[in-house]
């Protein structure tokens, strides 16, 4: 009840923190899509490259976020950006690579070879084949990768408050340091709600982007 009163009283701050959180995650995901999807497509051409890239990305994701922040701070402080928005953004982009690259790669390689052969035989160029056949068929799986990346990023962005990136995690960090249950719960609930809402929204998007021909049965 107290927490509820706190939320009502502080809703402009909550909205502002939410805005920071969303813009950080949003920017990271856009960059991650812009890099991950092309990489995922590119490595379908070469098995060795695919293995190497996926292996590197899976090691990347094993590194705990707080440790990665710790590693980035000394490096980025070389350009005076050790603390704040940039290390958080870099970390989120790096973490988002694995789900996006892996899903893109798997989805494209799983497209039935017969379809590829039919497309080639009918005279599609590589670009046309990607646009007309492979990407539409792979799209649901790619979006599901983005979904994983978004949920992961929202969680890590909450931790990024400790390196000065703001966001909803700030309520939690203050709640812990001031032993203030109201702030603690406000942070936990709002960041969870954001993650759940984003997950649901992207699931909706995923269904929307699935061609009806793939949806049946």
């Amino acid at each position: 009840m107290e927490t509820f009163a706190f939320m009502v009283a502080n809703w402009p701050v909550i909205l502002q923190r939410m805005g920071e959180h969303v813009s950080l995650v949003g920017a990271a995901i856009l960059i991650a899509i812009a890099t991950g999807v092309p990489i995922g497509i590119a490595i379908t051409a070469n098995r060795k490259a695919a293995d190497a890239v996926l292996y590197a990305a899976s090691i990347m994701i094993t590194i705990p976020s707080i440790a990665l922040f710790g590693l980035l701070i000394p490096i980025l402080s070389l350009i005076g950006q050790g603390i704040g928005y940039l290390p958080a953004l870099v970390a989120l982009v790096l973490y988002s690579q694995l789900p996006i690259i892996r899903n893109t790669y798997t989805a494209i390689t799983n497209v039935d070879p017969a379809l590829r052969e039919a497309a080639r035989g009918m005279g599609m160029t590589t670009a046309q084949r990607l646009r007309e056949v492979e990407i539409p068929i792979a799209l649901p799986v790619i979006v599901s990768g983005v979904r994983n990346a978004v949920v992961l990023s929202i969680a890590i962005a909450a931790i990024a408050t400790y390196i000065g990136a703001g966001g909803l995690g700030t309520f939690i960090s203050r709640g812990i340091s001031q032993t203030d249950i109201r702030q603690l719960l406000t942070g936990a609930i709002s960041v969870s709600a954001l993650a759940i809402a984003a997950d649901a929204a992207l699931l909706g998007l995923q269904r929307l982007l699935t061609s009806p021909g793939l949806r049946i049965r």
């Binding site: 909450a158 931790i159 995690g169 719960l185 942070g187 936990a188 969870s192 993650a195």
Partner: peptide
Amino acid sequence: TIPTLAILA
């Protein structure tokens, strides 16, 4: 889906 920090909180 719930962020780890939220679970700890």
